[in-house]
Design a protein around this nucleic acid. Structure first.
Lengths: 242, 242
DNA sequence: TTACCTTTTCAACAACTGTTGAATTATGGG
DNA sequence: CCCATAATTCAACAGTTGTTGAAAAGGTAA
């Protein structure tokens, strides 16, 4: 018996940004395929037709989401990269990881969305994603190259793969470690994630360094603070996380 | 004008296995969500209703797919693991990677299906997947533990994460490296995959070994055969793969 | 033949999908 | 006050979805 809503402008206008927020939330839950315009509209508190007033179609919303997120990351990454020229490659990589972590860690929906559409999506969408990622990896390549030139990174590393191994595989860790932690090992996920991050960096850096015995002093404090977490997990649960 | 097909049993019965093949093919293309029962039926050459004669619903088909694939992998992995007790951990891991590669490399649909449902799927489905994966990682854990005991693997490795880092991240490489190779670097994907496999193992092993300077002679032949591929790629394309 | 069991298809259900054209209201400018 | 424009909703289109109950055809046994 609620009757029809009044048409025309609302008291507070529904900004396109708000529609994007809603879209991201729903995409996150259901994927680009599974998300329905009606669900997005419900999330945003408006009629589905309003979405078409601001966006051409569903795919256009997805593109808009990319355009909103990537430039910010890229800009900060570029600034960081320029500021750190000359520093030890390990430290540059660690800081890069931290920055990407900040942008992506709390955004599982965005991560799974991008990954899903890159692997399964239509030609045009894959290309759109690639366009956004490319400059990001170019920055990483520069770090690797400088590291090799300074003798900090082993020459036999396949440089074309380094960036992918480092960042995309870290995204995979963010996506799956918490899930696996709960489902497979029964460990609460918030304990494991900081540990996983350090473990990943350790593994990766040991994997690419030219001087395996050199220890990274800038990590020693973090390492100490995580040691007891690690022992706690190791002692309390026998089963492998995955 | 073809008219209705005759009802009743066909000349050659449609086995449930054939329905599963069809389901896997369609799931691979469209995901569990996107795949329609009608599409699966079309692929199998029968009516959608026939599927419901053999399976309860769509999810049941998915479960049946898991039950068909995982036990085979696990069995071979167990045999391999028992046969190799006492060998160097690096060699054991390399062979494990090879075995999993054999089962999974040519099955992108299955990989993406399992990963997708594990991250996005319903509670029950996640649990079903976890049940299949758990023993697999238990085998890996044993290898790591033996490696640590023999002083081949560094003690500071977080054992709970080792198996996940090793295998799941390799799956991620199988999924994304070919795509990235084409889309981002413009390199033909069939060149890059064997190289990526060796590079990943190199990185991982260097990341976990306790003796970084020890070189792995069992890989030297493969390494030599890939060197020229690598140089070809490195010289022809400046851009990072990703 | 008759009866039964197994396999297969048909036809329909209700729900949901992306999208659009028209209708409606509020706001601000002249 | 009138009018144009911006913002919002309604109602519908044509299509697809997972699923089901009933009907039909073949084989087999009595």
């Amino acid at each position: 018996m609620t009757g029809a809503k009044p048409r025309g402008p609302k008291a507070t206008r529904i900004e396109p940004e708000k529609l994007l927020d809603a879209a991201q939330a729903v995409f996150a839950r259901d994927g680009l395929q599974g998300a329905s315009m009606r669900a997005i509209a419900r999330e945003a508190g408006c009629d589905p037709a309003l979405i078409y007033y601001h966006f051409q179609h569903k795919e256009a919303m997805f593109s808009a989401l990319l355009d909103r997120k990537f430039p910010a990351i890229l800009q900060e990454l570029g600034r960081l990269s320029r500021a750190n020229v000359g520093k030890h490659a390990a430290e540059r990589l660690w800081e890069t990881l931290g920055l990407v972590h900040e942008h992506m860690a709390l955004d599982p929906g965005f991560r799974s969305l991008v990954r899903g559409e890159f692997t399964r999506g239509a030609e045009g969408i894959q290309e759109a994603i690639a366009r956004h990622i490319r400059p990001l990896f170019q920055l990483l390549l520069a770090i690797f190259q400088e590291g090799v030139a300074r003798g900090e990174i082993r020459e036999s590393l396949v440089l074309q793969l380094g960036g992918f191994f480092f960042l995309r595989l870290y995204m995979e860790i963010l996506d799956l470690v918490p899930l696996m932690s709960v489902r497979i090992a029964g460990i609460p996920s918030d304990l494991i994630l900081p540990l996983a991050r350090l473990a990943w960096f350790d593994l990766f850096w040991r994997g690419i360094t030219a001087r395996p015995d050199e220890d990274l002093s800038f990590l020693s404090q973090l390492r100490a603070s995580l040691r007891e977490v690690q022992e706690c997990i190791q002692s309390a649960h026998g089963s492998p996380l995955c």
